[in-house]
Design a binder for these strands. Structure first.
Lengths: 401, 401
DNA sequence: GATAATTCTGCAAGGTGGTTTCATAATCGC
DNA sequence: GCGATTATGAAACCACCTTGCAGAATTATC
């Protein structure tokens, strides 16, 4: 009837631990190190490693260079190329892709133009830019971010940014072409997932509730609760845009400016940052316009933090400050959420798609369900977008090994 | 590090299954029937029953009256009096209590006046009215519902309805007196929990998201999501009352009526139900006043259903109809939630407290954590409140066996 | 160069939890 | 009384994990 607890689950948990220990390690590990890292006994570790080796996930590594006393230990490591995982971000005018190996190390990223007439072709094109070719590692899973609302059956219901998406079951179509499992999700929700998983360490205790506020051409919201994406009964949680009588697109109350994209609004924010009173007033008016509705959502959800992303979030305190003030005048009680800038201002959806791909493909790739994605390593190894460089630790923009 | 998967968990799952099968059964069960009901093997069932018998939870029962062919089966049943569980609902002017046996059969309920100077005494008084006395079964756990906001440390933070509550750590105080674990929770959240657990069967598939809207002296909201209470980072989720500039107490826009309690507003709703145009207009104005803010919450959470409870909900369609219309004019898109009357219009918090008590005491009572509460049997055996009788299947109002 | 110390390695034994199988016991109908 | 039927208890077996121990490989020391 209910769950199917059995000894097989114990084995899965052991396998999961061993896999995670190997994945998080920077160097190959000896059996003894694995015993210490997993808390399992030596015979168990050996047995699990036999399984993983038989499946090609674990390979022997060179012995340690600095020999210590005693018999040198056999060293093992994950084969990073046992499977690769891709993340795709389908935008209004472009497709972005990342490819990571099994350990979460990002191998390459790409950005290609979008042909609205050939969505599938554009996605494949972006993938070809990052995939190493015919002799490459097999694709274990793909996560796909789309700028639209998903229907209950997993297809795209509607999309303001990309009307051609409506009704398409892109996950199934792409899975058939790639012969790999594809998981589809809304872009804002994926960005919220990524911010939640990555913010847990940077900003103190694991955020129990997180609201991602993305301010760009449109204003959109996604919510993380109980450690998972809040989908809602119709996958519409956080979609504030459909309440009648409320314009929930960005635009100042005084009608002088249209906050269409981050690029167009950035000059205003820069002027505000340097003390231009008019610009500051403009920003303030905008924040006061969106604050009441945002406050209603925050009261409903009571999140620990609000993460501000989207094109305008790079303005930093020039936007966050007035927004904090506007919200503060709405929320009087205790328990006001922290307002923080996004950890991934530009790549949230892309990283979220990749991580979601890892989660989705866990059983297929590792042979064990529910292995968490290597979020931290993805973030560490993600090259910055060559098209929109921003100050960040980044590897070679080309990204190929 | 992480979870502690081990054989002990398998044993817990087996014990849980056997316990649930015995609890849900109307009659004593034979070993063979338990084998069929649990899906476990015969030796496992025997072993688990040995444990449960040693702990006094399972006792032999009389053989079946109607003998069939073959050797008569040994029959076993739970000892309902191995432990009792109490639910307490601390209200603004009274304390209500229920006592249930181990199987969830409600043995008695009581309502006593509240002495705000002696909260602990009032709670004990209500308990004495339902507890069978010194020779009664031991109290395995107590769930306590309070009309106030809980702080992070589990004490009561503040309470509009009962200011004396502020700062009190009632759970600890009561647990010391009763020598039983006590779990404290907000009354609206407990009512939402009860509606969620009970509504799953009555209203189709298990509600993925549920919003309880309680309309009485105040208007309050609680949210169920991912099968659990949405607490929020500061346990303030759903507390819409603190947004500045918005009066979120009931009151018609035209100022003619104060919707203070269900009793005072019921005549108006009755007039509306019989076609009084003025009354209908009054109800409509009220609904249109609260609809915008409610709509914001519904867009954020996208619940499957909105359960309307509280004093005014007994008016049925006279209130639900206009509210549905007002919400419908706010929510345009797809995915509008169903608006349904509460299954427990008067006893939601009380039943929620009792069920929460069962959940909280699971490990102590059954020896296994996470045994679900016997919600359905509680509902079936709950006597109606002798003070506010309403048409419902009820047993003897006295409630004692 | 032999010995000691250290470390890793593999195997055997033992425990828990669960399942399948089988001989045996109790009862009813004929 | 006897067979059919059903329940019962014990034994054998499997999966998973752990503890413990003898042995192998290497470095450091005498």
């Amino acid at each position: 009837m209910g769950e199917d607890r059995s000894t097989a689950e114990i084995r899965q948990a052991s396998t999961r631990r061993a896999h995670l220990a190997l994945r998080e390690a920077e160097q190959p590990l000896s059996i003894a190190e694995l015993v210490a890292a997993t808390g399992l006994s030596r015979p168990t570790v050996l047995s699990v490693l036999d399984d993983l080796t038989a499946r090609g996930l674990v390979v022997p590594a060179a012995p340690a260079e600095e020999p210590g006393p005693g018999r040198p230990a056999r060293r093992l490591r994950l084969d990073p190329d046992a499977a690769h995982v891709a993340g795709l971000d389908l935008g209004a005018r472009s497709v972005r892709a990342v490819l990571a190996d099994l350990t979460g190390t990002v191998l390459a990223r790409s950005t290609v133009g979008l042909d609205p007439e050939d969505l599938l072709g554009s996605l494949r094109h972006a993938l070809e830019e990052v995939d190493a070719g015919p002799d490459a590692a097999p694709l274990g899973a793909v996560g796909l971010s789309v700028p639209g609302l998903l229907a209950a059956d997993g297809s795209v219901g509607s999309s303001l940014a990309l009307p051609a998406l409506a009704g398409r079951d892109l996950a199934r179509e792409l899975a058939e072409v790639l012969e790999a499992p594809v998981v589809l999700e809304n872009d804002v929700k994926l960005a919220a997932l990524a911010e939640h998983r990555l913010g847990a360490e940077a900003d103190g205790p694991a955020a129990d509730g997180l609201v991602l506020l993305r301010i760009g051409h449109r204003i959109s919201v996604a919510i993380m609760v109980h450690g998972q994406i809040l989908q809602g009964a119709h996958r519409l949680a956080g979609e504030l845009g459909t309440q009648r009588g409320m314009r929930w697109t960005a635009g100042s109350r005084r009608g002088r400016l249209v906050w269409s994209t981050g690029d167009e609004a950035r000059p205003l924010l820069e002027r505000a940052a340097t003390g231009d009173a008019d610009a500051q007033q403009e920003v303030r008016a905008f924040c006061e316009e969106i604050a009441p509705r945002l406050a209603g959502l925050l009261l409903a959800v009571d999140p620990e933090m609000v993460v501000v992303g989207g094109g305008l979030s790079r303005a930093g305190e020039a936007l966050l400050g007035p927004l904090r003030a506007a919200l503060g005048s709405q929320l009087t009680g205790p328990g006001r959420p922290r307002l923080v800038p996004a950890a991934l201002p530009a790549d949230g959806s892309l990283v979220g798609a990749l991580g979601r791909g890892f989660e989705h493909g866990s059983a297929r790739i590792v042979g064990v369900p529910d292995v968490p994605a290597p979020w931290e390593r993805i973030r560490r190894t993600l090259p910055s977008d060559p098209l929109t460089p921003d100050p960040r630790t980044s590897t070679d923009p080309e990204g190929r090994r």
